[in-house]
């Protein structure tokens, strides 16, 4: 269950949209931020808020890269695997992080702290290789700086 003030906020967002559906992505993102991922419960809540059916939410939720329909760690590490980062050694960075976390790409660490996902170009090609943790983008990541980064998030 989402808190009442959040429900109110989302209802206001929906009311300001041209159609309810227009606000669907915003609603899903808010619910995801609240729950950590878009849980089944969140899908049903989103459907109720938007006047849609859970299936109609699911059709959208499963379309987008950054809507998680499975549990993810507290920090989702999106490592860009597109061409510019690839050219600058992105694969090595990805491999290094997977090794450091002891998981394969797509996996979540046992402590629930990290999920490692490849992602579409982050639009930071001049600073490649690049990755995003939460909303923060990191530039020119190397195997060494990746290790430091993981450490920072582990022990903030």
């Amino acid at each position: 269950m989402i808190p009442e003030n959040m429900r109110q906020e989302l209802q206001n967002r929906i009311a300001s949209a041209v159609t309810n559906r227009e606000a669907a992505v915003d609603v899903m993102k808010s619910l995801q931020a609240h729950y950590g991922w878009l849980t089944d419960e969140a899908v049903v809540e989103a459907a109720e808020l938007l006047g849609l059916t859970p299936l109609q939410i699911e059709e959208l939720a499963t379309f987008y890269e950054m809507i998680y329909r499975r549990p993810v760690g507290r920090y989702v590490i999106h490592v860009c695997d597109s061409i510019s980062c690839w050219a600058m050694g992105g694969e090595t960075v990805m491999g290094k992080i997977a090794g450091l976390l002891g998981i394969s790409v797509g996996g979540t660490t046992a402590d629930g702290l990290f999920t490692l996902l490849p992602c579409c170009c982050l639009g930071n090609c001049g600073q490649s290789p690049t990755l995003m943790i939460g909303d923060t983008i990191y530039n020119r990541v190397t195997a060494e700086s990746a290790a430091e980064l993981i450490e920072q998030y582990r022990n903030p």
């Binding site: 170009c121 639009g123 930071n124 090609c125 001049g126």
Partner: peptide, 12 residues
Amino acid sequence: DEMEPGTYKDRI
């Protein structure tokens, strides 16, 4: 929606 790999001009 600048997602073409190698493209980041709009963000800059």
